[in-house]
Simulated assay, not measured.
Amino acid sequence: MSLISLEQYSEKQNRAINRVLDTLDRLDARTSAHYSEKRAHERKAFRGLVWLSIPDGTQEFDQAMTKVWSRSISQSGLSFIYPMRIYETQVRVGVPVGTDQVTWFRAEIVRQKEVEEEHFWEYGVRFLGKVIA
């Protein structure tokens, strides 16, 4: 899969990012009481950039990598938005730690939802373990 980098987002997509994140936060606030009891780990708001790597046809992750906007994070996973549908379920996510370090996790896409009016997708991933270099 060919990934779109943040630099390739259209002007319209760049303007939509905060609206999408705000909309998803509002929806989450309405349902948080119901789902918070079912979650194994507490979710924290985390609006920031994380790395996303999707395997190419050879199952190599390093070939297709980009930054995406994250919305929330927990010990067991995170949520991010991306302007395209991702069909693969196994991905790698790089979470910034400090100013110049990234911790990579093997992850599985467990939830996806289209935010139709903004032409973005929200993804929820479950961490499967750290990537050992």
Rank of each mutant, 00 (worst) to 15 (best):
L49A: 06
M1K: 06
F105Q: 11
I81N: 01
G129I: 08
E88V: 05
F61P: 02
I17A: 02
D56Y: 08
Y87L: 09
R39E: 02
F46T: 01
I132C: 08
R39T: 01
A133H: 07
W104T: 08
R111V: 02
S70T: 11
S79I: 04
I17N: 01
G48K: 11
G57E: 13
E114W: 01
T58L: 14
S5T: 15
Q8M: 15
D56V: 10
D100I: 00
S74P: 11
E60G: 04
F127H: 09
Y123C: 04
D56R: 07
I109W: 09
T23V: 06
D25L: 12
W104V: 07
A133F: 02
E7N: 13
L52W: 03
G129R: 09
R43F: 04
I109K: 12
R30E: 14
R19K: 09
V102R: 10
W69F: 13
L21N: 00
F80W: 05
S32I: 10
F105G: 08
I81K: 01
T58E: 15
R71C: 04
Q75G: 03
E7K: 15
S70D: 08
Y35W: 11
Y9R: 11
S10M: 04
V91M: 09
M1R: 04
A33E: 12
D25T: 10
V20Q: 00
Y35Q: 10
E42C: 06
S79F: 07
V50I: 15
K12A: 14
L128V: 02
A64D: 08
E108H: 09
E116S: 13
E88H: 08
S76P: 00
Q13V: 03
G124T: 07
D25Y: 12
V102S: 03
T103H: 09
T58P: 00
Y123T: 06
R15L: 13
V110M: 07
K113S: 14
S2C: 02
F120M: 05
D100S: 12
D22C: 02
S72P: 02
W69N: 13
R30K: 15
L6P: 01
M84Q: 14
R47W: 11
A16G: 03
I109S: 10
